[in-house]
Simulated scan of single mutants.
Amino acid sequence: MHILTFDIEEWFHLLDNPSTKTNSQWGNYEVRIHQNMERVFNILDATNTKASFFVLGWIAEKYPEVVREICDRGYEIGSHTTSHQLVYEQSKQAFQADVERSIKSLEDISGKKVKMFRAPGFSIKEKNKWAFEILFELGIEIDSSVFPAERAHGGLPSYGSAKPSILQYNGTQLKEFPINTFPILFKPMIFSGGGYFRFFPYKCIKEWTQKSDYVMSYFHPRDFDPEQPIVKGLSPQRKFKTYVGLKRTEEKLKNWTSDFEFIDIEMANNQIDWKTVRKIQL
């Protein structure tokens, strides 16, 4: 099972970076979402591939036409919060209000119930697992926020399972589509999205995909934009992670979606016998 998803945000929505942290700063940067979404749509059209889109509420409020086009093209949408903040830096009240606002914005534009969620930076970890309870209370049924390995902005390595599962927390439960891992040098590694996909040669990605029975991808419009400006103030390491491989991502994704069949989360959800999957109590 190979699942294709996109997190819809602007090129400057970089986490844990002072100059791009808040809404008041985002107006200082040029708009590139429309041209980058066209790149995404063209890739999907070229290979006739379905995908799921986790859309930032800020994008929905500022550019509702982006959400309308996603829906008009027949793709499903989920929430990526409103303000693109690290969840573990938010209070419970702030997180709930942030997600609730995004759901309302997306539902008002699309006319459809929002049932899916992904946290910015997969930033739900041990100390803020309460986020899953809030998602359940807000009507979210499917989550894709678990990054079952170590990560700078989150990571929940104790989750254990890198396959679809039932996540249970404090009397609530969600269908969880975690990011997949692959053992490289005895360590669980990620290859199916973002900077990981941009960094690794396609030969490796293809081989690891062939050996994986579950792949959950995650891309951003900025991953296909080699002409985007460079945000000032990034450390050399962060700059490398943010901009590595941008010139090759579009071709690599076209190859990937040609070599393998990808489906969206809705199709995956319908194919899975949820009575038989692993239940994980947090």
Rank of each mutant, 00 (worst) to 15 (best):
G154Q: 07
F54S: 00
P221T: 14
R238H: 10
D213E: 12
L234V: 10
A94H: 08
K175R: 15
F6D: 06
Q271Y: 10
D7E: 07
P120T: 04
Q281C: 10
N270F: 03
I124K: 00
F95Y: 10
G139A: 01
Y159M: 00
E266S: 15
G171C: 09
I265E: 11
V40M: 08
K254F: 01
F182E: 02
C71M: 14
Y63F: 15
F54H: 00
Y214H: 08
Y88C: 13
I265C: 10
F122K: 03
V244K: 01
P148S: 06
M189E: 14
I33C: 10
K129E: 04
K247L: 06
F177P: 06
E261C: 10
S123W: 08
L138M: 07
G245E: 06
D213S: 11
E100V: 00
G27S: 09
S110I: 05
T49V: 02
Y243R: 03
F240D: 00
E100L: 08
V40H: 01
K175T: 15
P157N: 07
D108V: 11
S235C: 09
M116Y: 11
E65W: 04
F182D: 01
A268P: 11
E266T: 15
Y202A: 13
V31W: 12
F177C: 04
S165A: 15
L106Y: 02
A51Y: 00
I263G: 06
N28I: 06
R68T: 14
S145K: 08
A119L: 02
I263K: 13
C204G: 07
L15K: 05
T81R: 07
I70E: 05
N17L: 14
T181I: 11
E126Q: 11
P64A: 09
I142P: 01
N255G: 10
Y218C: 10
T22V: 01
I103F: 05
P221E: 09
E38C: 01
G155E: 00
W256N: 00
K21A: 15
S91N: 07
V277M: 12
I272F: 09
L44A: 06
S235N: 09
L185E: 06
N36T: 11
E38L: 02
F186C: 13
P120S: 04
G171M: 05
V67M: 02
E176T: 12
G121T: 11
G193W: 05
H2S: 11
E207I: 03
R39F: 14
R222E: 09
Q281Y: 08
A51R: 04
I134E: 12
S165W: 12
S91K: 12
M216R: 09
L156D: 07
S158E: 14
K62Q: 12
F260E: 03
L234Y: 06
C204M: 13
K163E: 15
L4K: 09
E30W: 04
N17H: 15
Y243A: 03
Q237C: 03
H13C: 08
Y88E: 14
G194Q: 14
D72S: 13
H220T: 03
G74A: 05
V66D: 04
T81S: 09
D273V: 08
D213I: 06
G78D: 04
Q237V: 11
E107W: 11
I109N: 14
D45N: 13
Y169N: 14
P201E: 07
D7I: 12
K203H: 06
F6R: 05
F95I: 03
L167Q: 13
R198P: 00
R39L: 13
F191L: 10
L167A: 12
S235W: 06
N42G: 08
S105L: 15
V66N: 08
K129W: 00
N28Y: 09
